[in-house]
């Protein structure tokens, strides 16, 4: 049972990776004309030819695509490059390799996303549990309904409002960036403070929008769990209500929340990309935006490929963990 499940999830992950790489290979070749050539020309025209070493650029481009090779050979070498995380060179900042730019943005995105997702997951789960708990204070139900409405609004719109109110009007938080110019990144208090300072508004935008989504799911699960016989027996046993809430209610209602985490990852990442754009946060999303602005095709391609593959892997890992947390499923793998 568990083995079947793992195999199926693993198969889907492989299929997604295969498709992601193949689509990345096929799309530019399917389009009429040669979009890359066209973009190169456009960039050269717009920048008045000051793109850097154009000849080197063109050479690397030819070599990368092996344009004289047959299609299947191009496909194979594309896979080889993908395995080596070699996405070619940036068209705009020519000597820079795409992978270097992506890697520079990765910690920022992972930090922001990881923090915001963890906080909103726990806050939302807790809030949703309380909203379903009859003995909880009324405040949670009223507050919860308000936050539920927010959950339908795209993250970056909330980000824009936060940016205007807290950075422009009130001037409490910085308007953008990940760290002020001149601060060297190191393991010290100044760095940590600066990063937290700059990350507050972007993280808050994601959290405000995401808490409601977790709360609404948890509330539904908790309502159905609270109707279970084991809750009635727990009350009859004379247990403290905190224990009934946490160990009998929450502990059971939380399991489906964790599967939803895997399904929500794509949505969260898509939303976070635009939050980074709004706050000029130096993560992958902002780099993607800049690449789209400057039509830096290889950077777009590299980021898209990296996003798809890492999301597929992350979802697979979450899918693996889930049965381990639920003893009912653990028992079935013999």
């Amino acid at each position: 049972m568990y083995a079947d499940y793992v195999l199926r999830r693993f198969g889907i992950m492989l299929l997604v990776i295969f498709l992601a790489v193949s689509i990345n290979f096929a799309l530019p070749r399917l389009m009429p004309g040669d979009p890359i050539e066209a973009q190169l020309n456009r960039i050269m025209a717009e920048s008045g030819g000051a793109v850097g070493d154009v000849q080197a650029l063109v050479n690397s481009y030819r070599e990368r695509f092996g344009l004289d090779d047959p299609l299947w050979q191009q496909y194979l070498s594309f896979w080889q490059a993908a395995f080596r995380f070699d996405f070619g060179y940036s068209l705009v900042n020519f000597p820079e390799r795409v992978i270097d730019g992506v890697l520079a943005g990765l910690p920022w995105t992972l930090g922001l996303l990881g923090f915001a997702t963890a906080v909103s997951f726990f806050l939302g789960t807790w809030l949703g549990g309380l909203m379903a708990w009859p003995q909880a204070h009324r405040f949670f139900r009223v507050f919860g309904s308000g936050i539920l409405l927010l959950s339908s609004v795209p993250y970056f719109l909330i980000g824009m409002i936060l940016l205007y109110v807290f950075a422009i009007v009130l001037r409490i938080f910085p308007a953008g960036g990940g760290i002020p110019f001149g601060v060297d990144i190191g393991l010290n208090w100044v760095t940590v403070k600066a990063i937290a300072w700059h990350g507050t508004l972007p993280a808050l935008s994601i959290i405000l929008a995401e808490v409601g989504a977790w709360a609404i799911g948890m509330r539904g699960m908790m309502i159905s769990v609270l109707g279970e016989d084991y809750i009635a027996l727990a009350e009859a046993k004379g247990l403290r209500k905190q224990r009934v809430f946490l160990w009998y209610g929450m502990r059971n209602a939380m399991l489906p929340q964790l599967t939803k985490l895997a399904m929500a990852l794509g949505h969260i990442v898509s939303g976070a990309i635009l939050v980074e754009v709004i706050f000029s946060y130096p993560g992958i999303g902002f780099r993607l935006y800049q690449a789209i602005q400057s039509q830096d095709y290889f950077v777009i391609q590299g980021i898209v490929l990296l996003l798809s593959v890492s999301l597929a892997v992350a979802m697979f890992i979450l899918d693996l963990i889930y049965p381990l947390i639920d003893p009912r499923i653990t028992a079935q793998r013999t």
Binding site: L27, P28, M263, G266, V269, S270, Y297
Partner: peptide, 24 residues
């Protein structure tokens, strides 16, 4: 079912960005 599972796993925005970036 397999196709729908796979498309659900692919981050939509990534594919959209790629397609949109290739359209003139």
């Amino acid at each position: 079912r397999l196709i729908s599972d796979v498309v659900m796993t692919i981050p939509g925005i990534a594919i959209l960005v790629l397609v949109a970036a290739n359209v003139r």
